[in-house]
Design a protein around this nucleic acid. Structure first.
Length: 586
RNA sequence: GCCUGGAUAGCUUAGUGGUAAAGCACACCCUUGGUAAGGGUGAGACCGUGGGUUCAAUCCCCACUCCAGGCUCCA
């Protein structure tokens, strides 16, 4: 007891969750004697455990399991660590192939297995740490039942996973559960259709979102901002078709590495075509269309290019994972000496974009290849090493804090990825900057250098936000649907108090429209209060209310979203204010 | 794709082995209201699709489709 009081709070919480997980195992074993323990850890928000079980466990069974866990906790059984000789451990778990596999790992490392006993009733192979007794486990709750492959390998057996969480105090647990509920309300899949931004229609197909007029405004505003940024920094926009001959992808290597995500080839006359799964080859062919001089480099081609990828049905969700995605893509073809400057440029673009969106909760992932995985990457360890080192040097220089992810690289190069979380805490990749030292050589892309020699350019693949669809989805959640003025589909709504104010309201909205502000006139016959409420629910940032007072004085009353009356002002004053706010992207 | 659930009006949900209820939204009428829901009336559902069990299925069983959570994969 004393010991655990001395451990830091977060460590204690981890230990508590880990122990709760053991209690879960013990309870499960009692309720379902036939099941076999696989494994499970304490995780960021709780814990989980994987069971191999021939029967069915559903969420309706969770209260029953929780009740059994409470019994064990009530007994306040001591949790005791035991270093155990390998031979004894092998015997103890001789019916459990999962534990045997784990013991193999421990043996390989030359370590001694450790056991944790809960009282004298339950024992598991475990590295710990744990709390001293089951009574120290705080309030807990089992959350969901899920399936999970053993070792995360889809060729292995599917196990039954139970997720749960535990906290030190009841208010903390309640707060966590409340947060989950609140976060669900921000879910873009709910808010999107509710705010009339996008729909997914069964007859069109899953993973193929349709943007409504309002959603298209958001998309176009994002694109307009990107174009503005790119225009200032020397990017040149191109446009390329959505299909190409499959032979092209055989040459680039996409066919070998990307085959499963490309849609079935189709024939046109005697030739075979596919839907493009990425924009790279199209851009390369623009580069290759004529001889290039070193003077032209860096050549920055960019395009919001819509690509089509076969994602398995279970992987799809809202706008964050779709089958038709628009990559705000660029390919920068350059000389090797230009790598640093071009990456710096792109990192700054990404950071500017994130700032404009008010996205400050992101992290950076340096995605490297896994040298052991020969199938996934172009075979050339030396170049991989060089590219990986270069990127790490760049990311270090940028002063971004980053984590290294082995095995997350593209097949043609390592990447700097910018990650964000969605409303329910799932991590998504947004911007990606990829260093490609292979493709130019593979495709015979060249330029003539100052000394007249032919050289292969280096390629920087840049996804500015990564995917427009995903970005829209994440922004809906980030803003909870209340977009800043510049992104709002409707920026101002004019609400006349009574019928006799309609013509004045029309004049007001026409003036705003002339200033290129997105304005709506709500002249429905319902009460003014009702229409204000509707505008609030639609998250319209500015409301103009006009009645007798305003009409006589020729001014307007202004109300802002979420706040009360701003009072009277002239229309010109508001227009000026709004245009300024839009220009500053506030 | 795999594991576990779910699907009732445009939306959110109630309900039953004898073809269904409410609120919101919608239409019409009354109301002309000063900063988050004025009142009334009406229309709207082969209860996801296809099979099966049954005298009878929205309800029970099976398959499929779509959705959700997770796994795998990924921008």
């Amino acid at each position: 007891m004393k010991q655990s009081q001395e451990t830091p709070r977060s460590q204690k919480l981890q230990a508590m969750r880990h122990s709760a997980e053991h209690v879960l195992e013990q309870a499960m074993l009692k309720l379902y004697p036939g099941l076999m323990m696989a494994m499970g850890p304490a995780i960021e928000d709780g814990f989980y455990f994987d069971f191999d079980f021939s029967g069915k466990i559903s969420e309706q069974d969770l209260p029953n399991i929780e009740a059994e866990m409470k019994n064990i906790i009530k007994k306040n059984l001591p949790i005791r660590k035991e270093a155990c000789p390998m031979k004894k451990a092998r015997e103890l778990f001789n019916h459990n192939p999962y534990k045997q596999e784990w013991l193999d790992e421990i043996e390989k490392k030359g370590e001694t297995p450790t056991l944790y006993w809960t009282g004298s009733e339950f024992v598991d192979l475990c590295a710990g740490p744990h709390v001293a007794s089951t009574g120290e486990i705080g309030p807990f709750k089992l959350l969901t039942v899920a399936g999970a492959y053993w070792h995360g390998d889809e060729n292995q057996k599917m196990l039954t996973r139970i997720y749960g969480t535990a906290f030190e105090t009841k208010p903390e647990l309640d707060r966590y559960l409340w947060q989950i509920e609140e976060a669900k309300k921000r879910d873009h899949r709910k808010l999107g259709p509710k705010l009339d931004l996008f729909v997914i229609n069964e007859d069109i197909g899953k993973g193929l979102p349709l943007l409504t007029p309002k959603g298209t405004v958001v998309r176009n505003e994002i694109l307009a901002y990107e174009k503005e940024l790119e225009g200032r920094t020397g990017f040149q926009e191109v446009w390329t078709p959505h299909i190409a001959k499959s032979d092209l992808y055989k040459r680039t290597g996409h066919w070998d590495h990307y085959r499963e995500i490309m849609y079935a080839p189709f024939g046109i006359e005697s030739e075979t075509y596919v839907l493009k799964p990425m924009n790279c080859p199209h851009h390369y062919m623009i580069y290759a269309s004529r001889p290039r001089s070193y003077r032209e480099l860096p050549l920055r081609l960019s395009e919001p290019g819509t690509c089509y990828r076969y994602e398995k049905s279970g992987e799809l969700g809202g706008l964050t994972r779709v089958r038709s995605l628009t990559i705000d893509d660029s390919h920068i073809l350059m000389r090797e000496e230009q790598i640093d400057a071009e990456f710096e440029l792109c990192i700054n673009l990404v950071l500017a974009m994130f700032k404009a969106f008010g996205l400050n909760k992101y992290w950076v992932r340096l995605s490297l290849n896994d040298p052991a995985d020969h199938a996934k990457y172009i075979a050339d360890p030396k170049t991989w090493k060089k590219a990986g080192r270069k990127l790490e040097e760049i990311v270090k220089k940028s002063r971004l804090t980053y984590e290294i992810a082995k095995g997350e690289a593209s097949f043609y190069g390592p990447k700097i990825d910018f990650m964000v979380k969605d409303a329910i805490g799932r991590a998504w990749q947004m911007s990606t900057l990829q260093l490609d030292l292979f493709m130019a050589k593979k495709l015979g892309l060249v330029y003539t250098d100052a000394d007249g020699s032919e050289k292969h350019p280096v390629i920087l693949h840049r996804g500015l936000t990564g995917s427009l669809e995903r970005t829209i989805g994440l922004l809906i959640e980030h803003y909870a649907g209340a977009f800043p003025l510049w992104l709002s589909p409707t920026q101002v709504i004019v609400i006349p108090i009574a019928d006799r104010h309609h013509s004045y309201a029309k004049k007001v909205s026409a003036s705003l429209n002339d200033k290129h502000l997105r304005v709506e006139l709500d002249d429905r016959p319902s009460s003014m209060q009702k229409r204000i409420r509707d505008a609030e629910l639609a998250k319209v940032p500015f409301m103009i209310i006009v009645g007798d007072n305003e009409r006589i004085k020729g001014d307007i009353s202004v109300r802002t979203r979420g706040k009360a009356d701003l009072g009277r002002m002239s229309l010109a004053t508001l227009e000026k204010k709004l245009l300024k706010q839009i220009a500053e992207k506030r």
